[in-house]
């Protein structure tokens, strides 16, 4: 085999690298996944905290459910400075973009990885020593979460998937929706998948953005475990509360 000078010379620096190079590189895509991942994690926290208001019951002053007031507050963010619902709309656009970028990057990387792997497969069962169940099933857990999110939006935001849906009556909608055993099971299964997804993702993102120091590396795993556990327990508490009748 003979090597000569490679034919193409990359335009490696400058603005073209920014647009063409960085974001089309696998490391750049992993950066995007990590950054959108952080955004989605923060959203999960906010979403959970908001939803936990279902345990707060009825506001003694207005007589409305706390969680209904919370949803109203979201719609009136920005007060009289902006049209009603516009800030929430911006949040939703941002959230959708994060989803699209996160998933788009994952699809692009998956395609490249399958191409890099080629057709050859090991005959012997691979003995994965470091890769764990969560890391190897990111695509699967991600897909489950995506399907659930689509249903979740149709169910509780748009109401298509909930015959008893009443716009603005968050508490009643949730109770009505999660009282259906199939829906509650799907909800819980999706949250388990989400927890697996976070277990790897919340660890992996530090690696992707290069936050590394041998002294603190072990903390990354604790962080990921606690984060996943917090979201899982928090989210599961709601259907369980509805099932047991604690919230009705």
């Amino acid at each position: 085999m003979t090597t000569t000078k490679r034919a193409h010379v990359h335009d490696r620096y400058g603005w073209r690298a920014w647009l063409g190079g960085f974001f089309s590189s696998s490391i750049g895509l992993k950066w995007l996944m990590a950054l959108t991942g952080i955004g989605l994690l923060l959203y999960l926290v906010a979403h959970l905290i908001g939803n936990l208001k279902i345990f707060f019951g009825v506001d003694p002053v207005t007589g409305a459910y706390e969680i209904d007031l919370y949803s109203e507050a979201l719609r009136t963010l920005g007060g009289h400075l902006v049209p009603k619902g516009s800030v929430l709309l911006l949040f939703r656009i941002g959230l959708s973009l994060m989803f699209i970028i996160h998933i788009g990057s994952a699809v692009a990387l998956t395609r490249r990885n399958l191409a890099a792997r080629g057709k050859g497969r090991y005959d012997a069962t691979r003995h994965y020593a470091a890769a764990n169940y969560a890391s190897r099933t990111m695509r699967m857990s991600g897909t489950i979460v995506l399907l659930f999110v689509l249903f979740h939006v149709a169910d509780l935001t748009l109401g298509y998937a909930n015959p008893d849906f009443v716009y603005g009556a968050v508490h009643d909608n949730m109770v009505a929706s999660l009282s259906r055993p199939i829906v509650a099971l799907f909800y819980m299964a999706a949250n388990v998948a989400l927890a697996f997804h976070i277990y790897h993702g919340a660890w992996s993102l530090f690696q992707s953005i290069g936050t590394v120091n041998p002294k603190y590396n072990s903390l990354r795993r604790y962080f990921a475990v606690s984060f996943a556990a917090f979201i899982l327990l928090g989210n599961l508490s709601i259907p369980l509360a509805i099932w047991t009748g604690w919230v009705s």
Binding site: M1, T2, T3, K5
Partner: peptide
């Protein structure tokens, strides 16, 4: 090799 001054032949 990258600069093109050396031609490299492996497994030769």
């Amino acid at each position: 090799i990258e600069a093109g001054t050396v031609k490299f032949h492996s497994r030769a």
